[in-house]
C-alpha cells in the first residue's frame, strides 16, 4: 500500500512529535509498519475496528499451483487447526483447495476457498445469538463465547466455509480461541491484521497468488489490481458483496 490513510498520517505526525520521547514505546504499530511489508497500520489496543476500511483478498487462480497446499498448512499452523479425526469429514478446514474442471473444455483450475467475508453475510443473519458477526472493517468472525453450536450458520453459508469443532481440542494457539461444540471459519488472521501483518496464507503463498489489503483504499495494491483486471465474486448472483475476489476463473 503506498499512500497513507488519514489514521496513518495521524500516527506518523504523533510519532514524529514524540520521537525524542521514545518512538517505539509510544507508537509500536508505526514501528511494525515501518519494518514489515504490512498493508496498513496496526490497530492500537482499545480502539475499535474502523468502518472506513474493508479488508479483502484477491486470489489469482492462474498462479495457484495444483497440488500445492502451502496456504492450508500456513493457516492451520497459524491458527492451531491440527486435529485429525477418524472421519475426515469432521475435521475443521478453514481453507481448502478446490479443483475445478470446466465441463465444456476440460480446463482445470485450482484455487483456495475460505470464508468470503461477505458484506451481507447469511451466517450473521441467521445466527440466533449474534455470535456470528461482521467487524466494522468487514472481517466476519464467530464470538466463541456466545456461539451455542446450533450450526445454522453452516446451513446458511453458500461457500461451505464453516466447520464445527467435533471433539476436545488441545494445543490451541493463544491468539486463536477454538473449542469443542463451536463453529469456526477463516478469521482473515484478524490477530495478525490487527498487528499490521498479512494473513498467514497470503504471506506463505510461494506463487504470490494472494493479495491482501483495503478494498476501500483506491490506491491499495488490491484495489489497483481489481481495477485493472477482470475479477470474480463467487456466486455473484447472490449479491453478498464479497471481500474475497478471484482472478482467472
Amino acid at each position: 500500500m503506498s499512500a497513507p490513510n488519514p489514521r496513518r498520517a495521524f500516527f506518523a505526525a504523533a510519532g514524529a512529535g514524540v520521537a525524542g520521547l521514545g518512538f517505539t514505546a509510544i507508537a509500536p504499530g508505526l514501528h511494525l509498519m515501518a519494518v514489515g511489508e504490512a498493508n496498513a497500520a496496526a490497530r492500537p489496543a482499545g480502539t475499535a475496528a474502523s468502518p472506513a476500511i474493508r479488508w479483502g483478498l484477491l486470489i489469482d487462480a492462474t498462479k495457484c499451483a495444483p497440488g500445492c497446499t502451502k496456504c492450508i498448512d500456513a493457516c492451520h499452523e497459524e491458527n492451531g487447526v491440527s486435529e485429525q479425526l477418524p472421519d475426515p469429514r469432521q475435521n475443521s478446514q478453514w481453507i481448502r483447495k478446490i479443483e475445478l474442471v470446466d465441463r465444456r473444455n476440460g480446463r482445470v483450475t485450482t484455487l483456495p476457498m475460505m470464508c468470503q467475508h461477505c458484506a451481507k453475510p447469511p451466517c450473521v443473519d441467521v445466527c440466533p445469538t449474534g455470535a456470528s458477526m461482521k467487524r466494522a472493517d468487514g472481517i466476519v468472525l464467530v464470538d466463541r463465547h456466545t456461539c451455542i453450536g446450533c450450526r445454522y450458520c453452516m446451513m446458511a453459508c453458500p461457500y461451505k466455509a464453516r466447520s464445527f469443532v467435533h471433539t476436545n481440542l488441545t494445543e490451541q494457539s493463544p491468539e486463536t480461541p477454538r473449542g469443542k461444540g463451536c463453529v469456526e471459519s477463516c478469521t482473515l488472521c484478524v490477530h495478525r491484521v490487527d498487528k499490521g501483518q498479512q494473513p498467514a496464507c497470503v504471506e506463505k503463498c510461494p506463487e504470490g497468488a494472494m493479495t491482501f489489503g483495503d478494498l476501500n483504499d483506491p490506491v491499495s495494491a488490491i484495489s489497483k489490481r481489481i481495477a485493472a483486471a477482470n475479477t470474480t465474486q463467487v456466486l455473484s448472483d447472490l449479491k453478498l458483496d464479497l471481500g474475497v475476489r478471484y482472478q482467472g476463473i
Partner: peptide, 20 residues
C-alpha cells in the same frame, strides 16, 4: 447443540434477523 450448556446465552442474546 454443540454448547447445550449455553442455554442462558441463547435466552439472553437475541438477533432479530435470525429465525432461530
Amino acid at each position: 447443540l454443540g454448547r447445550a450448556d449455553r442455554l442462558m446465552v441463547a435466552a439472553t442474546h437475541f438477533n432479530p434477523t435470525s429465525v432461530f
